[in-house]
Design a protein around this nucleic acid. Structure first.
Length: 494
RNA sequence: GGCGGCGUAGCCAAGUGGCUAAGGCGGGGGACUGCAAAUCCCUUAUUCCCCGGUUCGAAUCCGGGCGCCGCCUCCA
């Protein structure tokens, strides 16, 4: 199976061929740690988490690096606001980041470098750029990359240097030679984080760190470089300029960019106050619901977030989970031998589902189509299950086939999509979330509910339906839903 | 203004030259149920923003228009 990916660099769908198979080197730009992670970060993280799992499924040995930007203007501003050291802010939000990502099931990268741990390497890289004539230091103690020296500038974002100059904004007091030049090293003002360098006390500019991390942890040419669409210009363009100026080799063979999250049709921004944090989402929903939402949209399309969509995704999630849970109930039914004159038709359906799933992912990672493939299988399984519940028996052939299908659902959706994982162990301290995950345990007494259910069952047996319905209605007011199934009454929290 | 992308049912979203236009949510009808819920079955776009063109044939390709979004400044 060949994997095709849309490469931002060429603007085309290309067959993915790693440089040194089976090894695949991926770098994605991580977060700047100055605030809570939001659904936009979540989307990017989920997309690349699932993509990485998919590559591993294809047999590649993936080496994945994702950074933290822990020195930056926004962090410094935040630190000043709170009268704290910038490192304290960075550490706090890195800790918060790990809480969030652990909860939504993002596997850590192989290396997660921080800028502050790589200052000497960054300085060394800048020096090499100066030596090669691509960068210059100013008397004020800043170092800039000279864009005009790099002939391919603009090739990723499809911009010409001329048009960029036309639209460039020149800040007063800047000591750049050319308005497009970008900072590699910034002189620190009083009270700002500073490191000694050949150009005086200062700190790294944003774009150098990623090049440095790639070189150090992956090599001069990587297979895939990823991130949000908004990073194409100037960040990724500037990375290419620095890296390729030095090595004269392609920096990344494939550039993958995920679409951005918008909220109710509007850009998500601090000024509009429409940020949705990951914490806000996972205190209301099971983490799988967010994954389903993200994966039900193509990764390059914009994702318009609104809460009704979470409700929609929740239904899909419950549909999947129900199919898995029902297997246990099916196993309790009486079985009989059925003469099918061959294998059960569900086997063929599972095969088609798996083929459809991986075919969709192979065509520019179409997770939404892959998911649809499994939704079809679940419909088929539900038909079989419904019949069995009605007959109060199931053929051993059908039960076996259902089990086979369940295995496929579990294996594929768990291993590739990261769904159906046991989330409680990975988030032991989230009381709010525990409530969500352990229905009603924190709100009402389980024993008491069971007692009411028992009493209601007695009433039903005596045809005292007004009493039975009263219990059901009152429990519903308390947020407890009762469902009468062939296996007795079940209850869950809304 | 420049660059990139998008416009498919009430909503989300596949399909990118040719079988009856995936899948989900919502709506309607039915089955099941004491009634519900859940689930299943049927149904819900004669048509893919508009106008031309290419073609035996287009949602799908080409030209034009309209509308929306993103980037161009920090941003996943």
């Amino acid at each position: 199976m060949t994997l095709k990916l849309f490469n931002t660099l060429s603007g085309k769908l290309e067959e993915f061929v790693p440089l040194n198979p089976p090894e695949v080197k991926i770098y994605t730009c991580g977060v700047t740690v100055y605030d809570e992670s939001h659904v936009g970060h979540g989307r990017s993280l989920i997309v690349f988490d699932v993509f990485r799992r998919f590559l591993e499924h294809l047999g590649y040995q993936v080496r994945f690096v994702r950074n933290f930007t822990d020195v930056d203007d926004k962090i410094i501003t935040r630190a000043k606001e709170e009268c704290k050291d910038f490192m304290e802010i960075a550490d706090r939000y890195i800790a918060r980041y790990y809480e969030d990502t652990q909860f939504i099931g993002i596997r850590p990268a192989n290396v997660e470098p921080r800028v502050t741990d790589h200052i000497p390497e960054i300085i060394e890289l800048i020096q090499k750029l100066i030596e090669k004539g691509f960068a210059y230091a100013t008397p004020e103690g800043n170092v800039y990359f000279s864009v005009e020296k790099f002939k391919d500038y603009g090739k990723l974002s499809k911009r010409s240097v001329d048009e960029l100059i036309a639209g460039a904004r020149v800040e007063p007091g800047e000591d750049k030679k050319n308005p497009l030049d970008f900072a590699l090293w910034k002189r620190s003002k009083a009270g700002e984080p500073a490191w000694d360098s050949p150009w005086g006390k200062g700190r790294p500019g944003w774009h150098t760190e990623c090049v440095c991390f790639v070189f150090k942890h992956l090599g001069e040419t990587i297979d895939i470089h990823g991130g949000g669409l908004d990073l194409i210009f100037p960040h990724h363009e500037n990375e290419i300029a620095q890296a390729e100026a030095l090595t004269e080799k392609p920096f990344a063979r494939y550039w993958m960019h995920n679409g951005l999250v918008i909220v109710n049709g509007q850009k998500m921004s601090k000024s509009l106050g429409n940020f949705v944090t990951l914490k806000e989402i996972y205190t209301k929903y099971h983490p799988d619901v967010l994954r389903i939402l993200v994966l039900s949209v193509h990764y390059r399309s914009p994702l318009d977030f609104f809460w009704e969509k979470m409700e929609n995704a929740k239904k899909v999630y419950e549909r999947i989970r129900q199919a898995v849970e029902d297997y246990e109930k099916l196993k309790e039914l009486k079985t009989y031998e059925e003469n099918l004159g061959g294998v059960h038709p569900l086997y063929e359906f599972v095969k088609e589902t798996e083929e459809g799933f991986f075919k969709a992912l192979s065509e520019d990672f179409k997770t939404q189509e892959a998911l649809a493939s499994y939704m079809n299988l679940i419909s088929e399984m539900n038909k079989l299950r419904n019949k069995a519940f009605k007959d109060k028996k199931i053929s051993s052939q059908a039960l076996e086939a259902y089990g086979y299908a369940i295995n496929s659902v579990k294996n594929t959706l768990r291993n590739i999509f990261g769904l159906l994982e046991d989330v409680l162990p990975r988030c032991p301290v989230k009381e709010v979330v525990k409530k969500e995950l352990e229905p009603a345990s924190a709100v009402v007494d389980k024993e008491l509910i069971n007692l009411l259910v028992e009493v209601r069952q007695m009433a039903r047996e005596k045809k005292l339906f007004d009493i039975a319905d009263k219990i059901r209605a009152r429990l519903k007011e308390k947020g407890i839903i009762l469902e009468d199934t062939p296996f007795g009454t079940k209850w869950k929290r809304v």
